[in-house]
Amino acid sequence: MKNLNMISRRSFLKAALAASAVSAMALTGCGSAASGTVSSAAVSSSAAASGSAAATGETFKVGIVNYVDHASLNQIVESVESRLDAIGKEKGVTFDYADYYANAQADQSNLNQIGADLVADGVDVIVAVATPTAATMLAAVEDTDIPVVYSAVTDPAAAGFDGEENITGTSDALNTDAIMNLIVAANPGIDTIGLLYDLSQDSSTQAIADAKAFCEKNGIKVVEKNGTTTAEVQMAAEALVAAGVKAVFTPTDNTIMTAELSIYESFIEAGVQHYTGADSFALNGAMVGYGVDYVQLGEATADMVSQLLCDGKTPADLPYQTFDNGIVTINTETAEALGLDLAALKEAFKPYCTEICEVTTAENFS
């Protein structure tokens, strides 16, 4: 797999080479395998206009933009790429994403530059992973016909994407009440729950509001702590430990996910159970991850890309997709370190989920 820490291959080339050399390399890297093949942009427009399927041998430029390097989003990128490879073999076409991958590393200026680069490259579609990425890519393609397919946008309507003509994708919306029920099931009589999240993350807004409503309804106090960087998240986690909470909830928050490897041991040492909105948190040490299957999310995103490029569909033809929540992922190492009986924990969780998976901490996963 490519190095996911790269900000942008094209930006790197621009910094390293003269503009003319970069242009030459771009033309070489993006050309068709056989001479005389119509350009992918022209083919895409033709296919969309006619509603016909793509012809064997066609090549499509697929921009893939990752918001930040962390487990959930990396899973999506890998899943999108592997699914596109499989679809390409089935249909006899090529999805060239390797030349158009970029990781913004949670930097808005990077996102802006990446969007401009991809539009200048004439990509046929942009896959935008996470809400900030999708918003920036949608702005970048405003005066073009390039569609945007997002993945892991928690609330497309709140983000302003629902109803936009040139964007569609997949949502990882979280059933917050279900995960709060897991906390209560494992801790009968719990009177205080910590909330750990980044105030600037749109993906956390609704889930945190739902968590507060759940706690108010059930007479549970909340202690809120926030962070926008890993260092701030570490301090926030320490503050929750100092406050004496025994369980902490985090939604599908990119900032906390990125910092999970830096905080999970502190929570274990303090006897704090961390319940989170994605299985990848559990892979990085949190006790429980709950939510959608990010591999499935990536595959569905790739299927939408294929429908746009190969089947003549438009974003308006493809409403955004949501997925059934209900998969609980337990980090067995963390649960055991917290002194919990795994069999009893699974039994307590059964009424609130459709599936229970077990993982151990994989520090090279993020």
Rank of each mutant, 00 (worst) to 15 (best):
R10M: 10
S11Q: 15
A15E: 13
L17D: 00
A19S: 15
A21N: 12
V22A: 10
S23Y: 08
A26L: 14
T28I: 11
G29Y: 14
C30P: 02
S32W: 01
S32A: 14
T37C: 00
A49R: 04
A49I: 00
A49K: 09
S50A: 13
S52T: 13
A53G: 07
A54W: 12
V62M: 06
H70V: 11
S72T: 15
N74C: 12
Q75G: 12
S82N: 13
K89H: 08
K91S: 12
D96Y: 00
Y101N: 01
Y101V: 00
L118F: 02
A120L: 04
V123P: 05
T131K: 05
M137W: 06
A139V: 04
D145G: 10
V148A: 11
V148C: 10
V149W: 07
S151Y: 06
A157H: 08
G163T: 08
T176G: 08
D177Y: 07
A178F: 06
N181V: 06
N181W: 04
I183V: 14
D191A: 12
D191P: 06
T192E: 14
I193M: 08
L196R: 03
Y197K: 04
S200K: 12
S203F: 00
Q206P: 01
K212Y: 03
F214A: 00
F214P: 01
K217M: 12
V223G: 02
V223H: 05
V223M: 04
E224S: 10
E224N: 06
T230S: 15
E232L: 04
V233K: 04
A236Y: 05
E238A: 15
A239K: 08
L240I: 09
A243E: 14
G244P: 05
V245I: 01
A247H: 07
P251H: 02
P251I: 02
M257Q: 13
S266E: 13
H274P: 03
Y275I: 03
F281P: 08
A282M: 03
M287K: 11
G291H: 09
Y294Q: 09
E299M: 02
A302K: 07
M304A: 06
V305E: 03
V305G: 00
S306I: 03
K313I: 06
Q321L: 14
T322C: 09
F323N: 01
N331Q: 01
E333L: 06
E333F: 04
T334A: 15
T334V: 09
A337D: 14
L340D: 11
Y352P: 08
E358Q: 08
V359C: 07
A362Q: 14
S366F: 02
